[in-house]
Design a protein around this nucleic acid. Structure first.
Length: 144
DNA sequence: GTTCTGACA
DNA sequence: TGTCAGTA
């Protein structure tokens, strides 16, 4: 399993991904990733974060999916299912109802507190491209 | 020296 | 996407 312990500073993360530091920050601003932040404000990335970024890169370069498109896919993750929310809870949930704005749940919840969404299954279970693909196939089957 | 935010070519 | 400023 890939470690979710934040260890790499942004310069190392960028080097591992062959992209600029600036671009790494942009993906965060767009809500695609939630890096750990030290009290100094400095970002740290885990192996899982790197894998997530790799997935994002592949989607952009190979699949020609836009950042907005990736956001949409993340937004469709059934968080209520993963968190086993009751129908009542779902109905009143600001996160559940945020999907209309094309905002992944982790950009809504705990906006000011880093570290919470980073640990959430909804965020962590979808770092791997294969898993995202499998999930989409399942959803498609269910609807056909 | 490295990273941060914000701004601009 | 790159780069520069002014900080911490």
């Amino acid at each position: 399993m890939l470690s979710d312990t934040p260890v790499y500073p942004i310069s190392v993360a960028a080097r591992l991904l062959n992209i600029s530091v600036h671009t790494v920050r942009m993906y965060e601003r767009e809500g695609l990733i939630v890096p750990f932040k030290k009290k100094t404000g400095h970002r740290l990335y885990s192996e899982l974060d790197i894998e997530r970024l790799n997935c994002i890169r592949r989607a952009i370069n190979q699949s020609k999916i836009s950042i907005a498109g990736i956001k949409t896919i993340y937004t469709m993750i059934p968080c209520w299912q993963i968190n086993k929310c009751s129908e009542q809870a779902r109905k009143n949930c600001i996160v559940y109802n945020s999907n209309v704005q094309n905002q992944p749940c982790w950009t809504i919840k705990n906006k000011d507190e880093r570290g919470e969404c980073r640990k959430c299954k909804v965020y962590n279970n979808f770092a791997d491209c294969q898993i995202i693909k499998a999930a989409i196939i399942n959803i498609t089957k269910g609807n056909s």
